[in-house]
Design a protein around this nucleic acid. Structure first.
Length: 908
RNA sequence: GGGGAUGUAGCUCAGCCGGUUAGAGCGCCUGCCUCACAUGCAGGAGGUCUGCGGUUCAAGUCCGCACAUGCCCACCA
């Protein structure tokens, strides 16, 4: 069969048009409205280093779902988009791009390099914006920001001055992480630890004036060129006699002190440690305690410098080889052991970092960490899911000062100047006129720029205008929710929180919604080197933005990783198609009805959709129409759905909320309600009012479902809604439905359940007895339940399609010739089908026996529970009663089954 | 070394406050081109909820231990 295009939803035609419509309607753009409550979120700014990946798609989908939901709830919603300059990453990219053109960065010079990088920024920020638009995000593009734009730069400066004045920003010579490839310092957070196979070299250090040696063990023999002591534990009796003496540093032939320090672990290695204060953070601390000399033996590219004597000029690893060889030749190498150890690498380029002593700018963290810690206890900040609170607190409790200066060009330049004459440091907005110390008029600005996270830390308020007290800042700040991945809690979330408290006195948001990573089909991280990345735009192109969005949130609990699969994506696309077709059916029939009655049913209000307290809904309105039990059921079910979805949205359980909508639309609405309503619609001439009630219900319930669906699948829901309710407005600004007691009809739900079981029962009898599909049978249902009988009429009129019946009879009394009939008890009803029209006895006996077994088992279980004194005494009354009811109904059914079985066995 | 996560159908995953017969999608099997949809419809098979112990009238759910697999943090040379 060839595909009929009209019957398949085609997102490509619809999505761009609707996004334009939204933009033109300015629906994403709010102005502070004091009559409303604000709801604000800021977008984690994507780096301008390249295209968006699945992680961005996930992050922004979640934000869009939240923001669309809140917008429909009537909040004045603001979502601020933007991009991040991504200092080191971008500098590396641009440098490489230049290199390919044969241009050397250094030769090009700072100014020209920055010009070039700004061009890069324009290009990539634009591409990112386009990509986000394809995803359907409803952020306010009029307020789009960039971490290096004028306002954000102003904020950065302001914060720098503030911290400097307070003494929280200081310049100091300390041991820092150095990337020899990027040639810049790094913060601790930018260093990743990797376990590597290494070696443990045992080396003899002769003790001056004796024949003795101290045997030390090291993983980095090349650093011995910078050794300024050997340390042992103060309680170590093996070495006590040497403490205070001198060791002779091999190769260098220099005397260094033997000191005692409790940092040394007696159990580990030989218990004697070489101390290299300039190239190891621990040794640095030991050095400070013992006032040791710090000898830097490395250049910025990790080659050995002039302090390394004959090894000068060698790369650190080359030097290691030579040193080991030389030690061996001198008989000072005792042994080499294999040793696993953890090595710090730069998270951007994976180069092994080198601890070096450098003059850098630091932010003092201990005081600023305090309010960020208290925020949790005071309830001013919470994580969803909650378990991430621990990670957050753990980092804060162990926080160290933040090295914020970077030796690169792309970034916010540090506003510090040095007097060219006396070196006096002046922190100021502009180049100072005169040195207050020496009167000199010549200054040099600090060459360094700030860590990229320094500006992102201010993002929630810098984007709203801070430090200027703008209307936006007053109204929209503090923001409400922040959505981000767990991998960036340290880098970003924590720094925003303490910056928010320090600069604005409040937490920058109250809720942090954490999501996981998108992995590939095999559970691996998506990465460039593996080549397993999936481009979200490709997926949107193939399946539509709605399908991608749906895939990213469905069936996933908050904070858990997601495994990408195109099969999952196809299932989501199929759902979109299902919604499309159900809607097509409804709209088509509404149109037909209009033709028949001469009215336009679509412009009428959707009666059961808008359930605001003062709306037109009333008992009266319901009574006026010929609503059947089935209509009442779907209205009631959709009403319950509203409550469930809203509850889950409030908890940020978006996966569950979507699942409920999915189940409702597909299983309840399409598979049952629409099927049951068909006959009434097709036979409108027989009963106009009934058809009208069905159509009205279809339209109302669909409209409600579309609203609930909209935050998740904004395009298709809007596309259908504009056809269903052709008013000049957008679904995205309609009211979020509310649960209403008036639309709750629990009895109808029971009736429906019963009815479903009857239909399934009939289908099952047919199947078990191998009745050919073409063969119709007469079905008789016996029941004294009035409501059920009424509801059964829906089947009666449509029995041919629903259960292949050529006749469907509902009666109160048992049939006179039960022996000639197959019977199936379903609660208070019994289904009879004539034996002559069916066939297989054995199948029927098998079916009944299976049922008998099941019921017997259930009765046993229920009886067990009910004979348990403890259960009767301790369980809540309704649970006990529920169990009694179950037992009674099982027993009735079992009796009937047994009679049936006897009957069939006799026939055999 | 510390912290946390995960373990449920063949696969990928849901499962709220402990309480009907543990669910979905995909895959598989059977039958259907039924006038919204074959991106569909009606059915079916498939589960010792990792294991052990505990709390409870009642445990996939809460607690403890064990095992397995990811992850994050950490200065052991």
């Amino acid at each position: 069969m060839s595909q009929n295009l009209e019957t398949t939803y085609n997102p490509k035609e619809i999505e761009p048009r609707l996004y334009d419509k939204w933009l033109k309607g300015k629906y994403f753009h709010p102005e502070p409205d004091l009559s409303k409550k604000p709801f604000t979120t800021v977008m984690p700014p994507p780096n301008i280093t390249g295209r968006l990946h699945m992680g961005h798609a996930l992050d922004n989908t979640i934000q869009d779902i939240i923001i669309r939901y809140k917008r429909m709830q009537g909040f004045d919603t603001l979502w601020v988009p933007g991009t991040d300059h991504a200092a080191i990453s971008t500098e590396v990219k641009v440098t490489n791009a230049l290199k390919e053109e044969g241009i050397d960065k250094k030769e090009l010079g700072r100014e020209k390099f920055l010009e070039r990088t700004w061009k890069w920024k324009e290009e990539y920020a634009g591409a990112i914006e386009d990509q986000l638009k394809k995803l359907g995000v409803s952020c306010d593009w009029d307020r789009e920001r960039f971490t290096m734009d004028e306002g954000c730069s102003k904020a950065v400066e302001e914060v720098f001055f503030h911290l400097y004045d307070k003494g929280y920003m200081y310049r100091g010579s300390r041991i820092i992480n150095w990337c020899p490839v990027c040639k810049t310092s790094l913060s601790d957070a930018e260093v990743e630890h990797e376990d590597q196979d290494g070696h443990f070299w045992h080396i003899k250090y002769p003790i001056a004036g004796t024949e003795d040696f101290l045997e030390i063990a090291t993983t980095r023999p090349e650093t011995m060129l910078g050794d300024t002591a050997v340390a042992v534990h103060p309680d170590d009796e093996r070495y006590a006699k040497y403490v205070g003496k001198k060791a002779i540093l091999p190769l260098v032939n220099k005397e260094i002190p033997i000191i005692a320090d409790s940092y040394v672990d007696m159990e580990f290695g030989t218990g004697a440690v070489k101390i290299t204060p300039a190239h190891d953070p621990n040794d640095f601390e030991v050095g400070k305690r013992h006032d040791l000399e710090e000898i830097n033996i490395m250049n910025d590219d990790a080659t050995i410098n002039e302090n390394g004597g004959i090894y000068a000029g060698l790369d650190r690893y080359k030097a290691r080889e030579r040193i080991v060889k030389d030690l061996e030749e001198q008989g000072l190498l005792v042994k080499i052991e294999p040793h696993m150890h953890s090595v710090g690498v730069h998270d951007r380029c994976h180069t092994t970092v080198e601890p070096l002593i450098k003059q850098q700018w630091f932010v003092k963290m201990d005081e600023m960490a305090k309010p960020a810690i208290d925020a949790i206890e005071k309830g001013e900040l919470r994580f969803v899911p909650e378990r991430f609170t621990k990670i957050y607190l753990h980092w804060l409790y162990n926080i160290k000062d933040w090295c914020v200066s970077r030796q690169i060009w792309w970034g916010h330049r540090i506003p510090a100047y040095y007097c060219e004459n006396c070196g006096e440091l002046i922190v100021a907005k502009k180049t100072p006129e005169v040195c207050p110390k020496c009167g000199c008029k010549h200054f040099t600005q600090d060459e360094d720029t700030l860590d990229t996270w320094f500006s992102s830390a201010l993002w929630p308020f810098s984007t709203l205008g801070w430090p200027v007290e703008t209307e936006d800042l007053k109204y929209y700040y503090p923001t409400n929710v922040l959505v981000t991945g767990y991998d960036i809690i340290f880098f970003w979330v924590i720094r925003m929180v303490f910056s928010g408290y320090e600069q604005t006195g409040v937490a920058p948001f109250d809720t942090v919604v954490i999501h996981g990573l998108v992995r590939d089909e095999l559970g691996r991280k998506m990465s460039k080197s593996l080549g397993n990345g999936v481009d979200p735009l490709d997926m949107i192109d193939q399946f539509g933005a709605d399908a991608l969005r749906m895939f990213l949130v469905q069936g996933n609990a908050a904070g858990n990783d997601i495994r990408f699969s195109d099969k999952g994506l196809i299932a989501c696309r199929n759902f979109a198609n299902k919604v499309w077709n159900a809607s097509r059916f409804i709209i088509m029939n509404l149109d037909n009805a209009d033709l028949n009655t001469g009215t336009d049913s679509r412009t009428a209000d959707t009666k059961y959709e808008d359930t605001e307290p003062d709306s037109h809904i009333s008992e009266n309105a319901l009574a006026l129409e010929k609503l059947s039990d089935i209509d009442a059921w779907i209205i009631s079910a959709s009403n319950n759905l509203v409550r469930e979805v809203t509850d889950n949205m409030e908890k940020f359980e978006m996966g569950i909320a979507l699942q409920k909508i999915y189940d409702f639309i597909w299983d309840e609405f399409c598979d049952w309600y629409i099927e049951l309503a068909k006959y009434r619609i097709y036979h409108a001439d027989e009963d106009k009012e009934s058809a009208a009630a069905a159509l009205s219900t279809l339209r109302s319930v669909l409209a409600k479902a579309l609203k609930l669906l909209h935050p998740f699948l904004p395009f298709i829901s809007e596309a259908i809604y504009e056809k269903l309710v052709p008013k000049d407005e957008s679904l995205m600004i309609t009211k979020w439905p509310q649960y209403s007691e008036k639309l709750s009809f629990p009895e109808s739900e029971d009736v429906l359940e019963h009815l479903k079981e009857i239909v399934r029962g009939i289908r099952n009898i047919r199947r078990d007895m191998n009745v050919p599909v073409g063969r119709k049978a007469t079905v008789t249902v016996v029941s004294k339940d009035k409501a059920l009988c009424e509801a059964l009429r829906a089947i009666e009129v449509n029995a041919h399609a629903l259960c292949q019946a050529n006749a469907f009879v509902i009666v109160e009394n048992e049939p006179e010739n039960p022996d000639d009939l197959v019977a199936l008890a379903v609660k208070d009803a019994v289904i009879y089908m004539p034996l002559a029209e069916l066939v297989d006895f054995e199948q029927e006996i098998a079916r009944l026996s299976k049922e008998e077994e099941r019921l017997t088992k259930e009765i046993g279980r229920a009886k067990g529970m009910l004979s348990n004194e403890q259960f009767l005494n301790k369980a809540p009354a309704d649970k006990v009663q529920a169990e009694r009811d179950k037992l009674a109904s099982y027993e009735t059914m079992l009796t009937q089954i047994k009679e049936e079985l006897d009957k069939w066995k006799k026939k055999l």
